[in-house]
Design a protein around this nucleic acid. Structure first.
Lengths: 213, 213
DNA sequence: TAGATTGTTAATCGATTAACAATC
DNA sequence: TAGATTGTTAATCGATTAACAATC
């Protein structure tokens, strides 16, 4: 703890969390790295290595306490921190995110939604009213917003991201199909849906390329 | 061509495609690996290595012809192959995918949408009528469906995926927050939205972990 | 032709896996 | 205590980067 962690490790953490929750729902109290290996498909070594980046959560001869490990992962993943987020773009994607209920064991908090379309402004999406996009900047100045979720078309994405970054936003969850340019200290996570589809059609088209693992 | 390609390489291909389209729209005709390096942030070496998995598309002393390389990437990524896809789940995510216009330079083709909710059945989403989920199996038997897009809740995802795989579907684009179990020869691409969000909150919560690259 | 830039091999770096001593 | 399983170091594997000869 306190040193760099490779992106490969970070991307596996939510996966551990997901499987542990599943295990817990079956009433299982303890789990070993080799049991986790069987259900996740990762190696026991890798699982132990990954977790040990953040602390020794296991116990020799016993394994890991499921509930305890879930708690640790919630801390590690920032699920216990209150983050205020706003959604830019109230189209299907924006609405889907606003209505997504899977974040209920999280302190993640959507405080406002903005859209430029007059048709959508004023509409309520899971109890949050859609604001005109002009209100974005004043809103950011008045409120403490940590994360901006960008669900607008390609054209306006960078411009809106800039406004957010100019006003203290430190994390961007980007659904627009481009790589946003961000300043030092700001973190972007991209959800490039079409990239993902193309990797699928790639493998269907080139079965010979079939990945080693 | 004809041997295994690592997943890391495959994931960069759509990125190349995206940047090349952008370059082309600026009227640029040729590009070198070092120019591509500057705009993508990847190294020239890596770009040349990646492309050479699929053929020698460049020319010494010249670089790459932008339009030609775009064409090659379209072939490689399967954009020139006609794939029939169906969407399972007509909620926000399903609708967003059905309405997404970014696939226009693709032969990718959404032929049907299914949902279990009576409220949605019969509704038209970009000219495609939503069918009841019971029609899924007969539809698959009658039509040639290559890809199933799973945009249903966690609970029904695996069951529906099984029906699809039993009836010839070879690719699954999965939006449900679980890792689907698939049989030999079937390819899944997961879009785990919450995993993505958690990697974002992870970095905001643990700035010391800030990724090397 | 000379200059530029590729394609490709070799060197380096980092991530995964294996092994094992520590210990519950 | 004996058995199990971790935490952690060492070995292996694979991916990235560097270098350079081939060639347009």
């Amino acid at each position: 703890m306190g040193y760099k962690v490779s992106k490969a490790v970070v991307k596996r953490l939510p996966k551990y969390y997901r499987y542990l929750k599943q295990i817990k729902s079956k009433g299982i109290v303890r789990v070993s790295s080799s049991e986790l290996s069987q259900i996740t498909g990762l190696t026991p070594s890798q699982i132990r290595q990954d977790l040990n980046h953040f602390g020794g959560f296991g116990q020799q001869g016993y394994g890991y306490n499921v509930e305890e490990l879930i708690g640790e992962l919630q801390n590690i993943l920032g699920m216990t921190v209150k983050y205020n987020a706003i959604i830019l773009g109230a189209g299907n994607i924006g609405q889907a995110i606003a209505q997504y209920t899977g974040l209920s064991d999280t302190k993640f908090n959507i405080t406002a939604i903005f859209d430029k379309s007059k048709k959508l402004v004023g509409k309520k999406i899971s109890d949050i009213e859609v604001n005109p996009i002009d209100y974005l900047e004043p809103y950011l100045k008045k409120n403490d917003v940590h994360i901006a979720i960008i669900a607008v078309p390609l054209e306006s994405a960078q411009e809106l991201a800039d406004i957010c970054m100019d006003n203290g936003v430190k994390g961007i969850w980007n659904y627009a199909p481009l790589d946003l340019k961000v300043r030092e200290g700001v973190r972007v996570e991209n959800v490039h849906l079409d990239d993902s589809l193309f990797t699928l059609t790639f493998y269907l088209t080139n079965p010979w390329a079939a990945e080693k693992k």
